[in-house]
């Protein structure tokens, strides 16, 4: 298969997954009796101003059948029109645009922290000279994985904002304000990466080629840094790329704790208000991001690992592992 054909095929697969995820979420939200959008707009308990209701009713054209509605909204989604919030009447794209930069900055910093933490933990757990330290550090990822991020968030908040006063919990201090929320997110996200990295490094360290490197007289630091790390981190690299979706999902809790107005907070509110168009848009956004990143990793894989050719990668690879944030 030529490179071009392979790329085309993978892009087609990615589009298929995005479309299916849209369809699936639509099905989940609309499968129950009643129409969530109609119920919401006409809910007598929660009256919306007439100026908001009228355009919404016109836009969502509620007399159409479910299938027709699906086709209409799908068409709009593909042209970049994600509908209107049922609560405020603001276009969803506008709403998301407001929070996106905030959350992307948070996620980027959290990703950086996750990678650094995972590297630090894994390298210590595998190479640190004292066995007792190794085994304690080795247990860290399991502890991180078992700790809900709201606990981590509150503890960090209490210690660094309230007790030590290092970071303000109210005033915006630019990058500094991102540190605690990003760290909270990173504690949850780095654990599976660290676990896979520990496994990868331990396995690579036992490979016969390490003995040969040693027998050549290559310094231990070079063996660890250039050979073992490179070989042992390939699975962790894939996993890291896949955690981006979890960073966004985890932002829901973290932004709630730290009162930051990003996609996470928008999600939290949309779910609370059962603002269906916003929830759908967020899911499709996250799913798209996941698929795009997955596609990107597939394409750069042969560069990292010469054993994997595009031909071999053409067989659809399943997502290897899944991480969770609590």
């Amino acid at each position: 298969m030529s490179r071009r054909a392979f790329v085309a095929r993978r892009i087609a697969q990615a589009v298929l997954v995005i479309w299916l995820s849209y369809t699936l979420v639509f099905a989940v939200l609309f499968v129950l009796p009643g129409n969530p959008i109609r119920d919401k707009i006409t809910n007598p308990l929660n009256p919306l101003p007439e100026s908001v209701v009228r355009p919404l009713i016109e836009y969502y054209d509620l007399d159409l059948t479910l299938v027709e509605q699906y086709l209409v909204t799908l068409g709009r989604t593909f042209t970049g029109d994600l509908g209107y919030s049922l609560v405020s009447g603001i276009p969803v794209t506008e709403l998301l645009a407001q929070g996106l930069s905030e959350t992307l900055a948070l996620a980027a910093l959290a990703l950086l922290f996750s990678v650094l933490l995972a590297l630090g933990i894994a390298l210590t757990a595998v190479f640190f000279p004292v066995a007792a330290v190794r085994s304690v550090v080795r247990a860290l990822p399991a502890v991180f994985l078992s700790t809900p991020s709201f606990l981590v968030g509150f503890v960090l908040l209490v210690v660094f904002s309230f007790q030590l006063g290092w970071v303000s919990s109210i005033r915006d201090q630019g990058l500094v304000s991102y540190v605690l929320p990003a760290l909270t997110l990173a504690i949850a996200v780095n654990a599976p990466i660290a676990q896979v990295l520990i496994q990868g490094l331990s396995r690579a360290r036992g490979e016969p080629f390490v003995t040969v490197l040693k027998a050549k007289g290559v310094p231990p630091a070079t063996i660890a840094g250039r050979h073992i790390l490179k070989n042992g981190s390939i699975p962790a690299l894939t996993l890291t790329a896949l955690t981006v979706g979890d960073l966004l999902a985890g932002a829901t809790i973290v932004e709630t704790i730290f009162n930051r107005t990003g996609i996470g907070l928008i999600t939290e509110q949309a779910v609370r208000e059962q603002d269906t168009p916003v929830v759908m848009a967020i899911v499709v956004l996250v799913s798209t991001l996941f698929v795009v990143i997955n596609l990107f990793t597939d394409l750069v894989y042969p560069v990292i690992d010469p054993r994997i050719s595009l031909r071999a990668a053409a067989a659809p690879r399943r997502v290897r592992r899944r991480v969770a944030i609590g």
Binding site: V17, S21, L24, V25, L29, G245, A249, G250, I282
Partner: peptide, 24 residues
């Protein structure tokens, strides 16, 4: 089945459970 699993796995679990909560 595999395709549906792929799709479900492309949505983070916590977010997916929020979607189901919105529906239920």
């Amino acid at each position: 089945i595999s395709r549906i699993v792929d799709v479900l796995l492309s949505i983070p679990g916590l977010l997916l459970s929020m979607v189901v909560v919105v529906a239920l």
